[in-house]
Amino acid sequence: MTVVARRARGATSGAGRLAVALLSPTFVVLALVVGYPLVAALRESVFREGTDLDESGFVVEGARFVGVDNYASVFAGESAVRFWNAFSNTTVFTVITVSLEVVIGVGMALVMHHALCWRGVVRASILVPWAVPTAVSALLWRWIFQADGVANSIIGQQVLWTTEGWQAKFAIILADVWKTAPFVGLLVLAGLQIIPNDVYEAARVDGASPWRQFWRITLPLVKPALLVAVLFRVLDALRMFDLPYVLIGPRKASAETLSMLAFEEAASLRFGPAAAYATLLFVYVAVTALVFVRLLGADVIGAARERAAKR
């Protein structure tokens, strides 16, 4: 069927009504469960808890409307240094872990796809790191990276991995890539299934090398699945919290992420500033996602069908 015919059918109002009907339950669930916390966080971010004196000198208890004060204090003095440090940590972790996960994940998917023997076991076992709950894997890596741990006995050095410095960042990146590369691998594996075998056969007849087949056929065809994986990994990595928290611990400048900042503030009952941090992180994630979708829009949002039609 041609693209034009598809469009014409899709444009009928019957299909439109059906689409709305099919979408609405999902909308309702999301708006209820996710919309409220967002509004609550925004509201919280313009209030401040605690005992204070009002203009006329009376003692005021409880939450007080402070406007943009919470945001202003994020960018003032000490906390500005801390905020920008966490910001750069978050960004560095996201960029490095997601790039490594894409490379390793695609490799894993190819191994799972082409496994010659023990297919089921190979495919299931690649998921192992992801299957181990984060609470445990963070602990596992803490044992590995402790002063008299396995990491040090392998390299024969005495590196204090979980202290301030590059080594803490390295430990976090290694543990995160180890854990989430299988996620990318799984999605790419599913994407690989929709490539018909005859495409490869045609390429082989044409004498294309495996390397060329990979770049020209495999990669472009798994791109939709891969981009969704990357997008969701970026969203999760930007909000990274439990791994650095358990592995390195709170209030360490080398490992502190924006989520950890928000958590620390909330844990010390400063809900206003905590909500301000959370809102800033929300904005950061939203802008990143928007740029991602706009830049790669054609591939992420659709065009797959057109490509299929052309094929």
């Binding site: 899709g10 439109g16 059906l18 979408l23 996710v34 966080a41 909000r239 919290f241 958590f263």
Partner: peptide
């Protein structure tokens, strides 16, 4: 089934629920 430009906004709305930090 129904591919309209606006659907990209719908998809983006679904994404927005993944933007708020869990701790918040």
């Amino acid at each position: 089934i129904k591919k309209v430009e606006k659907w990209s906004d719908v998809l983006f709305f679904f994404l927005s629920t993944k933007m708020l930090p869990v701790v918040a």
